[in-house]
């Protein structure tokens, strides 16, 4: 009787038990650093002495929000995320559709199209820096050869092209992930839907609109949330190619935070920037969830 009670108790609380290891990891690796960062953001912590001598309250936040550098960095981050997402989703979707149609050498094409995603960011940035170099880069060489440009363009170095070039690089890097996830999504759509679409005589566009897109809505939602977080927080691509320049024309919030905390040694202010970044990313995600939460209610109805 007693044993049965213990087993029942265990059964009732098994879910909670399984959560404990995850919870411990969350507290140690997420909650503690987050709380420490919040605390640091309210101090004058300097990287020169590695200690804070004063609690400054919200002073760091006020200074950041009242300066234009933060807002320009935020706007750059939004542009970088938005255009990268559009490019990655468009190319990823087209590539996934093409791979669905291809009959021969499917695996070879799949591996080839997946290659960009396997590049380490340092190798990728070196590759693009060389290809786009104004003195010896192949892109300028080709464009000059085709008489499209008169003089070589410093793609990563000029104000008008720096952010655009990083976005192009990010699109090239990120589309395979979208492609692969959507390809998996296609497999979950029942064949009957396509057969009905054929019988109804739907054209290509109509098939996308009435069959594929509605069935992949949740996949798109998850992809959108993940890629938004990853791209908005992305640091290495921009830092290794443009360094946030020229001026601050390609500087995003993570770069601004890094420069403030590590190069200017104001870790307190740098921490405040990361907390603001967290708030903004959280806001975007909340909006996405709200949109997808509403759609779920609609579908339940």
């Amino acid at each position: 009787m007693k044993d049965r009670n213990i087993l029942k108790q265990l059964d009732d609380h098994l879910a909670q038990l399984f959560i404990i290891p995850g919870l411990i990891c969350l507290i140690v690796f997420v909650a503690y650093p987050a709380i420490l960062t919040i605390y640091n953001s309210m101090t004058n912590l300097s990287m020169l002495t590695m200690r804070a001598t004063k609690f400054v309250g919200l002073k760091n936040y006020v200074e950041i929000i009242s300066g234009e550098e933060f807002w320009i960095s935020l706007l750059n981050g939004i542009k970088y995320t938005f255009y990268s997402l559009i490019g990655q989703f468009f190319i990823g979707y087209v590539a996934a559709l093409s791979l669905e149609k291809i009959i021969y050498c499917k695996s070879i094409f799949r591996v080839m199209l997946l290659t960009p995603w396997t590049f380490p960011s340092i190798a990728l940035t070196f590759l693009f820096s060389w290809m786009l170099d104004p003195s010896f880069g192949i892109i300028n060489f080709i464009l000059e050869g085709l008489n499209i440009i008169d003089n070589p363009i410093p793609w990563f170095g000029a104000k008008n092209t720096a952010l655009f070039s990083v976005i192009m690089m990010n699109i090239w890097f990120g589309f395979p992930f979208i492609m692969l996830t959507l390809l998996s999504g296609f497999q979950t759509i029942p064949n009957e839907y396509f057969e009905v679409a054929e019988i109804e005589g739907l054209n290509f566009i109509q098939k996308q609109k009435y069959v594929i897109l509605p069935n992949l809505k949740k996949v798109f939602g998850v992809l959108l949330i993940l890629r938004t977080i990853w791209i908005f927080n992305n640091y290495d691509f921009i830092f290794l190619t443009t360094g946030g320049g020229p001026g601050i024309s390609s500087q995003t919030v993570p770069i601004y935070s890094y420069i403030t905390a590590w190069k200017r040694m104001a870790m307190g202010r740098g921490s405040a920037i990361t907390i603001l970044l967290l708030i903004f990313v959280g806001l975007f995600i909340a909006i996405y969830f709200k949109v997808f939460g509403m759609s779920e209610k609609e579908s339940n109805l």
């Binding site: 170095g157 000029a158 443009t242």
Partner: peptide, 15 residues
Amino acid sequence: MPEAMNYIINDQFTL
């Protein structure tokens, strides 16, 4: 070079 804002010290060797 006009507008070339992103060269670093080590790039001098290659240039």
